[in-house]
């Protein structure tokens, strides 16, 4: 079997602002589309359920969720709050657009969260990258493992 496709590791560090403190690492799940809480996710599985969403059917449980931010109903925080009570919350949140929905949602989900990064996380980070969020330091470390 040809294993010439050797892997090359690249590490990128982004710097931003703490939204909720703490440190977490995991596999990235990236979407360029905003997410609805109430009516957009299943709080028992962590899956996106919105009809025309690019992640429809995909669960963010345990993932580093990288997304532009929140949209839709004011039940956003309550539904992400329930994902925590049900143990299917994301491991961390990285987002680009601050709103009251995402701020309160991140606070009550009680996972590390950062925003205002010096590079666009939606273009730098790809689904599957290994990401470490150190929210207190305001850093996001991205390890890319791609075929050379």
């Amino acid at each position: 079997m040809d294993i010439a496709a050797e892997t090359k590791t690249e590490t990128i560090v982004l710097k931003g602002r703490k939204v909720v403190g703490g440190r977490a690492e995991g596999e990235a799940l990236v979407t360029t589309e905003t997410i609805s809480g109430w009516g957009g996710i299943n709080e028992r599985t962590g899956a996106i359920i919105e009809r025309r969403h690019e992640l429809k059917g995909v669960s963010f449980a345990g993932k580093i969720l990288v997304f532009p931010g929140a949209k839709g109903s004011s039940g956003w925080s309550a539904y992400f709050h329930m994902t925590r009570l049900n143990g299917v919350q994301p491991a961390a949140m990285i987002f680009t657009r601050m709103t009251t929905k995402i701020a309160l949602g991140a606070v009550v989900t009680r996972v590390p969260a950062v925003t205002d990064l010096d590079q666009d996380p939606l273009s730098v980070i790809e689904t599957g990258d290994w990401v470490t969020v150190d929210a207190d330091a305001g850093t996001v470390t991205v390890i890319k493992t791609k075929p050379a």
């Binding site: 004011s74 956003w76 925080s77 709103t99 009251t100």
Partner: peptide
């Protein structure tokens, strides 16, 4: 309630963000 918030801000000229259950 997003539909009430947008009415409150836009039609009534009162001031609110979209708050949540906890806030």
């Amino acid at each position: 309630e997003s539909s009430a918030v947008i009415y409150c801000n836009s039609v009534l000229g009162a001031r609110t963000n979209v708050e949540g259950k906890e806030s």
